[in-house]
């Protein structure tokens, strides 16, 4: 089973890009599973189900979404395997820009959009900087020069990645991206694998439900600003 992690800022077009790739994979008669991670609510699982692919939805609720991801992804991979998927795609949003679901030896895709602003590539951490493939979306609504400047900014923070422009609406470029998915890592289990980068940590009173503000309520791993 080929497994890929797809991540990216909220509303960058992850689901649209994956849907276009699914169409191209289905044209090649492939069996596909998708695991959709989100925080509070998502209806994207229905969009996937409509395409006739197997879907698993995971909502992290009150937990840190990326910590939730990493403690569930191994079981998701087994699930994909048991269901004879040829492709398993995990979709998760990087909400704090310091998190990343990318795993060593597993093909990592980051989706980022042209409208997000010229400084955004710098602001996103390992989710973008350690990805193997960077997909840039919404190119049809900006000018060629802006596309080039944006791509060069992405290139600056991840010069080793393959950078592709995909139109999530028309699907332009999705066929080509799919060819890269065909080369994704073929695995049976995630046992023994490691994350590409550690996740940000917190272990403080607020992690445990504290809501009161004030020095006396802060315990555990606390860091202070230099004011």
């Amino acid at each position: 089973m080929r497994f890929l992690t797809v991540s990216g800022p909220p509303s960058s077009g992850k689901t649209s890009v994956i849907l276009r790739v699914i169409e191209a994979l289905q044209a090649r008669q492939r069996k596909i599973g998708v695991v959709k991670f989100d925080c509070l609510l998502t209806e994207d699982d229905q969009l996937y189900a409509k395409k006739g692919v197997l879907v698993k939805k995971g909502l992290s609720g009150a937990l840190c979404p990326d910590h939730y991801f990493v403690s569930n992804i191994e079981a998701c991979v087994s699930w994909g395997h048991e269901n004879d998927c040829e492709y398993l795609i995990s979709e998760s949003a990087g909400l704090c820009n310091r998190c990343s679901p990318h795993i060593n030896e597993i093909t990592a895709v980051c989706v980022i959009d042209n409208l997000s602003g010229i400084n955004t590539p710098r602001k996103i951490g390992p989710m973008l900087k350690s990805a193997d493939i960077v997909v840039i979306t919404k190119g049809d609504i900006v000018s060629q020069a802006e596309r080039e400047v944006f791509a060069s900014r992405v290139k600056q923070v991840n010069p080793g990645a393959i950078i592709m422009n995909i139109n999530g609406i028309t699907g332009q470029g999705a066929f080509e991206l799919t060819s890269l998915f065909e080369d994704a890592s073929d695995i049976e289990t995630l046992k023994g694998k490691t994350l590409r980068f550690s996740m940000p940590s917190a272990l403080c009173s607020y992690c445990l439900g504290e809501t009161r503000i004030g020095e006396e309520y802060q315990t555990g791993n606390i860091r202070k600003m230099d004011i």
């Binding site: 042209n114 409208l115 602003g117 010229i118 190119g139 049809d140 609504i141 900006v142 000018s143 060629q144 020069a145 802006e146 596309r147 080039e148 400047v149 060069s152 900014r153």
Partner: peptide, 25 residues
């Protein structure tokens, strides 16, 4: 290089700054 029909700019720059940024990239 592709010149699409939609031609919106999203960057908050003057024409000169914009072209310079592109030239520098």
């Amino acid at each position: 290089a592709q010149l699409s029909q939609n031609m919106n700019f999203v960057m908050d720059l003057s024409a000169e700054e914009f072209v310079r940024m592109h030239a520098e990239s």
